[in-house]
Design a binder for these strands. Structure first.
Lengths: 87, 87
DNA sequence: TAAGATTTGTTCGTATGTATA
DNA sequence: ATATACATACGAACAAATCTT
């Protein structure tokens, strides 16, 4: 996730998105449990808050997670996922 | 942005940090006593909670204060300060 | 025992500024 | 000009520890 590496064919936020999506689908982050906080994800991936939020916003639009203000961002169980809008 | 604006020399949190550090070193806030609460510092300086916390976190890393959950943030006496890491 | 107040700790939500490609 | 990405800074709510009533 370092910016000084040779031109990646994916942006930083896309790479983080793919990784989190993979973890959710593999249930590394389990249904009804929170994913790590924005601050923790910032530190783990070494990216800025805005970048993490962009990723979480897309995961939320995809119906994979649901953010709850002041509490955390929770993994939505498969059964409860609406039709993905695939934006 | 149509015009160029000069960047401030110091950020808000740096200014508050300098002021609190000065007060501790001048013993306006005395050793083993608590500094004002986060809420009081917010109001005095007119800044947000997150900004105050950023300042207190750095003062703690510097070994000047020690936060105690549910109680307050206490000034560490000089004799008890470890070597400052000077981050 | 219970309830409330105060305080530190943590989290999401939002906006702005700066720099770069 | 637009999108990406960083840092700063605001607000709001939730949570847990401590103390008092």
């Amino acid at each position: 996730m370092t910016r000084w590496e040779p031109a990646p064919d994916q942006t930083v936020w896309e790479q983080v998105y793919d990784e989190l999506r993979t973890r959710i689908e593999a249930e590394v982050y389990k249904p009804r449990n929170p994913v790590p906080s924005i601050t923790q994800l910032e530190q783990e991936f070494g990216v800025a808050r805005g970048t993490v939020r962009k990723v979480l916003a897309k995961l939320a639009r995809d119906g994979l997670v649901r953010p709850i203000s002041g509490k955390g961002t929770y993994v939505v169980p498969r059964e409860e996922r609406g039709e993905s809008v695939d934006s």
